[in-house]
Write a protein that binds this DNA or RNA. Structure first.
Lengths: 158, 158
DNA sequence: CCACTTTCACCCACGTCTACCCAGAAATCG
DNA sequence: CGATTTCTGGGTAGACGTGGGTGAAAGTGG
């Protein structure tokens, strides 16, 4: 069983670092090697969070993007926003990573952080922002599950 | 005959642990091996309970999810809520599992717990919440049975 | 091109928490 | 009624999270 799971709270210190929860650091790929060893990719995420990908997942996303067409203006917009947020980081001896100041600002991170394991990647949230996201989302957890699994998914909200 | 059945009450101790009832621990797959041996998957369930899957059942769910795509906003919402609730646990020597604090809070678990065997999985409820769920559900047990087996099921409540 | 300032990577140290283990109490079964 | 299993409480060693200090490197201004 592999992938990132669970929900953790931790703190951002004065230097802009936070500790990746040990449970996430110890997640291994099927062959038993720790996934988060070495360099990982920190990036601006969707809905106002930060996302963290292991390096191989990052390559997969990059491949997907590179197949798109630069004459498309949505592609250019997305690329600008996407790549400019990228920050490769290596955890220190205590498993902490340093978050660039502009990402702290964009994700509105304060001292208290909420870390989510979301299978292939990890997300970092301002807890208030996450609660608001959950609370205002169209439909409850049960309803969304229903939409997803009955195939009636992803109509625009309005 | 295999699968999880029955209803049990147990207690959550000060450390956030509870004992899986022995009757459930001893349920075996058709080949005679105990299903709950080793790692089991504790997760946020629907309608405000916690759910417990054996590992193979969990893989089946994950496979179903993996066909979906992160560009779908319902998928992102569901993934966040779903995976963040997951906690793989291994029962200790005495058959107890530790419940993460945020799941205790979300399921509103107090000292008294209600454990339900629901065939492929197990559920953990705050007894009051379960009683309320049963009592407020649209239609009685008999009516729901009728709807289900005549095919007129899952219309919205109103 | 040099000197000063700031930033960051690396390391150490300490308080807290938790995974693991042991043991006694209660319940169940023959 | 005795033996065995199940349940519950608690102690302890080691892991984990957090704060901070220091030297090297990068950035800035003269």
């Amino acid at each position: 069983m592999t992938g990132f799971y669970g929900q953790y709270q931790t703190t951002l210190d004065d230097k802009g670092r936070f500790a990746l929860p040990a449970k996430l650091r110890h997640v291994t790929s099927p062959d038993g090697a720790p996934i988060l060893d070495g360099t990982i990719i920190l990036n601006r995420g969707l809905e106002g969070c930060l996302s963290i990908y292991p390096e191989n997942e990052w390559s997969a996303i990059q491949n997907r993007l590179s197949s798109l067409d630069f004459t498309n203006q949505d592609f250019r917009y997305f690329s600008r926003r996407f790549y400019s947020g990228v920050s490769p980081v290596t955890p220190d001896k205590n498993g902490r990573v340093l978050v660039p100041q502009h990402l702290i600002a964009e994700a509105d991170l304060k001292k208290e952080l909420l870390i989510l394991g979301v299978n292939r990647w990890i997300e970092v949230w301002n807890p208030d922002r996450y609660n608001y996201y959950v609370q205002q989302y169209r439909g409850t957890y049960e309803e969304v599950a229903g939409r997803l699994f009955t195939g009636k998914h992803d109509e625009p909200a309005e």
